[in-house]
Design a protein around this nucleic acid. Structure first.
Lengths: 142, 142
DNA sequence: TTGTCTGCAAACGTTTTGCACGACC
DNA sequence: GGTCGTGCAAAACGTTTGCAGACAA
């Protein structure tokens, strides 16, 4: 059940706690880029003693060790992503869904010439997602 | 003094108020991507009656009409940018400076194929800026 | 055992809200 | 006179902090 996450934590020399395992598992199984509050609410029922502080502490630790990523695409609140490889995100302004985007930008290499040391790249696209576009078309008739 | 900003507001059919003119001018003259609080503090001395609420209201209006852009690159607080053309940003994790980045990503075109309607593109790069890199090299000796 | 992690409550910083007043067509 | 903008105070929201007790190694 949790072997995968135990392994992940061990490999990164992070102490294993039930909370960290639960949070990691939650993020792995919920690739919806949840907020800290969503993680908390999602786990609270089966782990009534869980506190929001622990959620914040855990995602911070996991992020520092590069196991997960945090996103600031939706303004007010941070979102967390189990995927830790470089990829980008699309936020639908209508339904709020955040979709992974896997395009590459060859010009990012140009950043090297600028003299700045780039450690992170976040591409945030915003607009109306495919599904919401379809719904709009239906409503407007054809 | 303010003709430029009066013109900008008129062109976008936004009502002209002294506060909006001051804020627009501040953003034009301070291309440091200031926060709402920095705008407020920067203008408060010469406009003692200015309120923070008005700063928030104004930047919201200006952004809605596409005159300015808001950034969520630095987590906790929104930052505002007079530039409204598509460009990207680099945040130095050491000194906090935000630098405009003018590279193009030709693959953004691929987003069209995805079926999502893209209205905004924000490229956030994070790392250590050129100046901080120099300082680090000096400290470590050669 | 030793240091780290958890969970509670309180504090914090940013942003939003409700509302009365004032400015402008 | 009615709409819209301002500014104050209070509230809301996400997040952080301080601390005591619990737990992992």
């Amino acid at each position: 059940m949790f072997e995968k996450y135990v392994k992940l934590l061990k490999e990164n020399s992070i102490k294993i706690t039930p909370q960290r395992l639960e949070i990691l598992k939650y993020l792995d199984e919920n690739r919806t880029h949840p907020t800290a509050d969503q993680i908390y609410t999602g786990l609270k029922e089966k782990n009534p003693s869980l506190s929001k502080t622990t959620v914040y502490n855990s995602v911070e630790t996991l992020e520092e060790h590069g196991l997960i990523q945090s996103l600031t695409i939706s303004g007010s609140e941070s979102r967390y992503d189990f995927r830790n490889d470089m990829h980008h995100h699309f936020l639908c302004k209508k339904c709020g869904t955040i979709i992974d985007i896997d395009i590459k930008c060859p010009n990012i290499g140009k950043m090297l010439e600028s003299g700045h040391k780039v450690e992170e790249v976040h591409g945030y696209f915003k607009g109306i997602c495919k599904d919401c576009m379809k719904k709009e078309t239906k409503q407007n008739g054809s």
